[in-house]
């Protein structure tokens, strides 16, 4: 790992200023970025840690009943503190990686990274959550722009994520046992105005909404309603862990399991 200057500001404003510097980069829990820097795939001149900013920590409810999670909140804290308000989200957080990863890794880091096999992107897209940054609000539908790519500008900080709480929801993760990421993961959420289905781990384009299943489930929220639906295998990730066809098949299986578990 190449050396760098280290800053640990105490407020969002200070962090935003520090990130204006030449080749400065944000550091969340470091669970992705530190291994990446060890491989010299990233070599920032300055790392700006976001772990010392109280306003970016914790879980709360806003006036509209949305669950708000500070951008630097570790997965383990979401698992514990969101359980009473949004159990499906807490359960998702509680199955990311392993306990030590969950004690450091943060929601903001996971979303900014947008790994095609990460779990949080499915929850954010599957609920139509709002990503708050230091400069604006970004709707989930506008945030994910393909593998490892997001709508974030250089130096922009995810300060909070706001989740509208569904009537019923569930996340099903088919674990890739070596990495512990999702080989395929599906988040299903039912709202008064319809159902959303978001799929991670499967597509070459990263997390996506399965609109055909959404339409069928909005009419009839049961696993049977999507029994005959499938996604095309063409755009699916194909690697030594599973072919595109295998992943496409899993999308159907995991969606049906999520619906059954949510009902």
């Amino acid at each position: 790992m190449y050396n760098f200057d280290f800053a640990r500001p105490g407020s969002i404003d200070e962090a935003a200023t520090a990130l204006q510097g030449e080749e400065a980069q944000a550091l969340g829990g470091g669970q992705t970025l530190i291994p990446t820097m060890k491989q010299r795939l990233a070599a920032p001149a300055t790392l700006v840690s976001l772990t010392g900013i109280p306003e970016m920590q914790g879980v709360c409810l806003d006036d509209d009943g949305r669950v708000c999670i500070g951008g630097a909140t570790p997965h383990a804290v979401v698992e514990a503190e969101a359980a009473a308000h949004f159990p499906a989200l807490a359960a998702l957080a509680g199955r990311i990686g392993d306990p030590a990863v969950r004690n450091r890794g943060t929601i903001g880091g996971s979303l900014a990274n947008n790994d095609p096999s990460a779990c949080y992107p499915a929850a954010v897209l599957g609920t139509g959550a709002t990503i708050k940054t230091n400069t604006r609000d970004i709707a989930a539908d506008d945030f994910f722009e393909g593998m490892f790519t997001t709508a974030l500008h250089e130096g922009e900080i995810i300060t909070e994520v706001r989740f509208p709480v569904p009537e019923a929801a569930n996340y099903q993760k088919f674990v890739q046992p070596a990495s512990r990421f999702a080989l395929v993961g599906v988040f299903v959420a039912k709202y008064a105005d319809g159902v959303r289905v978001a799929v991670t781990g499967a597509s070459e384009d990263g997390v996506f909404r399965w609109s055909e299943a959404e339409a069928a489930l909005s009419a009839d929220f049961s696993a049977d309603a999507i029994a005959d639906l499938s996604v095309p295998a063409d755009d699916m990730i194909s690697d030594l862990h599973g072919s595109g066809a295998y992943r496409a098949h899993l999308v159907g299986v995991m969606t049906r399991r999520a619906v059954s578990a949510a009902t």
Partner: peptide, 15 residues
């Protein structure tokens, strides 16, 4: 670290 299990190979000392 502060009572919680963490991987010491993935945390900076200055944190």
């Amino acid at each position: 670290v502060d009572g919680k299990a963490v991987k010491a190979c993935a945390v900076l000392a200055l944190e």
